[in-house]
């Protein structure tokens, strides 16, 4: 059984399940560092997913699908930013609002766009091709890293790029300062509003990519509420890692792999409902552990 749990297949599936979580979590991490604990990634991703299919179907071009997904998601984050920054809304309530709005909006748009309710699938719609990495594709075990679509590879590059941006460039310094003590920006005459919107836009781009990965990454299809809680797991990854990007990435991968193992377990007859619970149980455990740790830190700072 262990063989099966840790097989190459599990790893390959794990990577593919981790990717949308990873991308959303990175977006959430940037927002979190910039002072907005964003829980609306689920909604942004869902809108991205729908518009990924829309772009790919109507323009017959998968690249346009990805671009549409990003644009749609960014529009959502800008709207979210408007309510948050301009109208000073509560970020948690806004987050729930946007998540629910996204479910309703995408479900409703399905009919006018494609003429059928619930889901959309058309075999002629292009989807992203899987790319093999030369050399690596022939090495046992490592070959799991090969044979994914472009968004997977892109997500790995984004981890590095975001890390460098947040911790090595003036922009990153400002974003992080914004989250910790936004007045430091005011007193050096910098425009905090601009930086806050920027964080939302970065989150929008990443959630758009995540959505595109879901809808046009494999098959080209969209079903109602197809994100099914991945955005919430991303929130857990952000919380767990304290929005420190390398840890966020690792946490997202762990969540992806547990989901993958859960699928394997299902194959050998574990109750599927129990198995479906695994990532959420791990999420809860992780949050409990990290909150204990945080409380302890708080105690020692006193």
């Amino acid at each position: 059984m262990l063989d099966m749990l840790f097989s190459e297949h599990t790893i390959t599936t794990g990577i593919s399940l981790a990717t949308p979580i990873l991308l959303c979590a990175l977006g959430g991490a940037v927002c979190s560092k910039a002072g907005n604990f964003n829980i609306a990634m689920e909604g942004f991703m869902l809108v991205g997913a729908l518009f990924g299919v829309v772009g790919a179907y109507f323009m017959g071009n998968v690249a346009m699908g990805v671009i549409c997904a990003i644009i749609a998601s960014v529009i959502m984050t800008l709207l979210y930013g408007l309510f948050l920054i301009k109208f000073k809304g509560n970020e948690i309530i806004l987050g729930f609002g946007f998540n629910m709005l996204a479910v309703a909006l995408t479900g409703w748009l399905l009919a006018p766009l494609f003429g059928n309710a619930g889901s959309f699938y058309n075999p002629n719609t292009p989807s992203l091709t899987k790319l093999a990495i030369p050399i690596i594709k022939d090495i046992p075990l490592l070959r799991c890293l090969s044979g994914h679509n472009i968004i997977v590879y892109l997500s790995w590059i984004i981890v590095i790029v975001l890390f460098i941006m947040m911790y090595k460039t003036p922009l990153g310094f400002r974003l992080r300062a914004l989250g910790e003590n936004s007045k430091t920006l005011d007193v050096t005459g910098m425009n905090t509003v601009r930086y806050r919107y920027l964080a939302e836009i970065i989150c929008g781009v990443l959630c758009g990519l995540a959505g595109a990965f879901l809808s046009i990454g494999n098959l080209s299809m969209f079903t109602e509420n197809m994100t099914s809680g991945r955005g919430y797991i991303a929130v857990a990854a952000v919380g767990f890692s304290n929005a420190y990007i390398p840890v966020t990435a690792v946490a997202s991968l762990i969540f992806g792999f547990t989901s993958s193992m859960a699928i394997q377990l299902q194959g050998i007859g574990f109750p599927s409902q129990l198995v479906d619970m695994t990532p959420y149980i791990i999420t809860i455990l992780v949050i409990i552990i990290s909150s204990f740790k945080k409380n302890k830190d708080k105690g020692s700072r006193q």
Partner: peptide, 30 residues
């Protein structure tokens, strides 16, 4: 110098000192 200090707690002293006017390496990095 404000009454409540305008510093970023997780940054080092040096990083806080140059905040907003950071010296740059290759024009991109701090």
């Amino acid at each position: 110098v404000h009454q409540h200090f305008m510093l970023v707690p997780s940054f080092t002293v040096a990083e806080n000192l140059v905040f907003g006017f950071e010296p740059r390496k290759h024009n991109v990095f701090v």
